[in-house]
Design a protein around this nucleic acid. Structure first.
Lengths: 331, 331
DNA sequence: TTGTAGGCGTTATCAT
DNA sequence: ATGATAACGCCTACAA
């Protein structure tokens, strides 16, 4: 049988109100009853029913994390950051993904908010539209978006422009002037920022931007990288390096295909990826890439959202984290 | 303002009881009121408060997933399986990990159950003791354990013995008689099973089991693989192949180190891993390995737990899934 | 310092 | 077919 406040109250000879106050560490309780109540609670192995508590307090004590796709190692890594910080926090994490769902992120969010399932949400998604993000602001549930800069919503993101510029700078410093750029257009804003960083770097070094050196890919997969390199390889005069904001798996595919076609990396063609996934260290030559501080983003996001929920913060906050350029062998 | 049953009831000129019945699709409601109520609900953008509902029905409509460590790609993959099946299911997934926590899996489970946070739990963990698992059985909340065979609890797992035997068989069929085996003892039962499969295979082929060819490693990381290969390389007479139940990252480390020491893979030393992680395709030569049906395990687990929660299943069920031997270049 | 009483939003059991 | 009413377990004024 499940034990409730009332059970404890009866045994202790007090009312459930008193027991409640003891359990919640409220002041103005005599030491004697406090001790007695706690003792009995322990004996009975009492745990408060969080649902009843939630109804009374209008809090669910849980935070929703909405992710586009658990298959993405980026997303998982941010989630790890969230969870490991979440350790010391009394909120439960509810996980939602939207891939293959008929509900959009914002619809899902709205429903969760209205159903009072969650006290706040962290949205990890680069693909929502600005318009959709407005729904997040309109609900009375705090939310923060990760990996995407966003004017009128809390957000934590990296400086993609700078990360991409740094990578391009590096290639240029190695003497490259013909640098292909492989992006993933459907990933929206971050892609644009990275592309801009690439352009900025070229411009700063007086290298003309050539739209024909920009290649588009659908997803961050190895086969896509292999395929795109075949196209890159046909460009005349030959490019000597490839920067791959689309992601490390594409970059790895490019390396594989380039080697297969007899090129030496990085001598004949240098490659720089984006993300720093585990496989980046495995491929040969190992992949030079732009690392995003994923754990830190998760960490910051959960702290921020808790502060919001508990009213310690108000107003819109933005946190920009730096990328880190990881030099390995491929460039 | 949040809209409740009562709000709808007032506008519709009925009581909240009636509205409740409409919302829940109960029979014996006149078409007229049903339509009217639904219309108003829609206008007001009503969503039921799941917490209040939970209190009344004594159900939280959520399932806990307890994982040892989100850093493990195995765990994440199972989680993916859970989530993608979870799509069509009205249960919410709450994620808990226990790494660095002072609560054990079973304590956490007990608390979640008693707090009525969850209607059922999926435990992905190979490291809990049999004893601890008893706590799971004792609570009145259904639970299922993934990746670990377990007598008196529902479970879904792979036939590790067979998977390991198959891998070993393959190496033997390639003419190897001196096969090192790299395990991770701290991972308990599955490790033992894999080791047993390795032994069985040797025995069936009349090859003496040599304990000195068994190496232990702490975690599934590349550096651990590199380190252990240095030891393996010192064995005289030289081994010609390595089977790595400890996991693919260790196997990849072994390949790297072996190449560094001038060996050709698989000619001088064949390597077989365990898990089939993404990087297995990336390493050169690509890694022959034992794939576990992770998505399927997740899929089965969530279906099973929902069936249990809803009383469609009772009694202890076990599901054994087959491993799949993936032949690539490293063996 | 403790008890009383009402409410949180739903569901469910009886009546009507 | 619908309405009253009492749970569900906890919290929180307010009263004593």
């Amino acid at each position: 049988m499940t034990v409730t406040l009332k059970d404890i109250a009866e045994r202790a000879g007090v009312t459930s109100a008193t027991v409640s106050m003891v359990i919640n560490n409220k002041p103005n309780i005599s030491d004697a009853t406090r001790k007695k109540v706690l003792k009995i609670a322990k004996e009975l192995n009492y745990y408060p029913n969080v649902i009843a508590r939630g109804l009374a307090t209008k809090k669910s004590n849980s935070i929703g994390v909405i992710v586009p796709n658990l298959a993405s190692s980026f997303v998982v890594r941010v989630l790890q950051g969230i969870k490991s910080t979440n350790r010391d926090i009394e909120y439960t994490v509810q996980l939602f993904d939207t891939v293959g769902q008929n509900e959009s992120e914002s619809q899902l969010f709205q429903r969760m908010a209205r159903e009072r399932r969650i006290d706040g949400v962290i949205l990890i998604s680069s693909t929502v539209t600005e318009e959709d993000l407005n729904i997040f602001r309109d609900e009375s549930v705090p939310s923060i978006v990760v990996a995407r800069k966003c004017e009128n919503l809390d957000s934590v993101y990296v400086n993609n422009e700078q990360g991409a510029a740094e990578a391009t700078d590096y290639l240029i410093s190695k003497g490259h002037t013909s640098i292909a750029c492989v992006i993933s257009r459907k990933h929206g804003l971050p892609t644009e920022e990275r592309l801009q960083g690439y352009k900025n770097s070229l411009m700063r070094h007086n290298i003309a931007f050539n739209p024909e050196l920009v290649f588009d890919v659908d997803d961050d997969t190895m086969p896509n990288g292999e395929e795109v390199f075949r196209k890159i390889h046909q460009v005349k005069p030959a490019v000597t390096s490839v920067f791959v904001p689309a992601g490390d798996m594409v970059a790895i595919g490019i390396i594989k295909e380039a080697k297969k076609e007899g090129l030496r990396i990085p001598q004949d063609c240098a490659v720089v990826g984006y993300d720093d996934i585990p496989a980046a260290e495995v491929v040969e030559p190992s992949l030079t890439t732009v690392r995003q501080p994923k754990l830190e983003m998760g960490d910051y996001a959960i702290n921020m959202i808790v502060d919001k929920i508990e009213g310690r913060e108000s107003g819109i906050k933005h946190k920009e984290l730096p990328t880190k350029f990881i030099i390995r062998e491929s460039a």
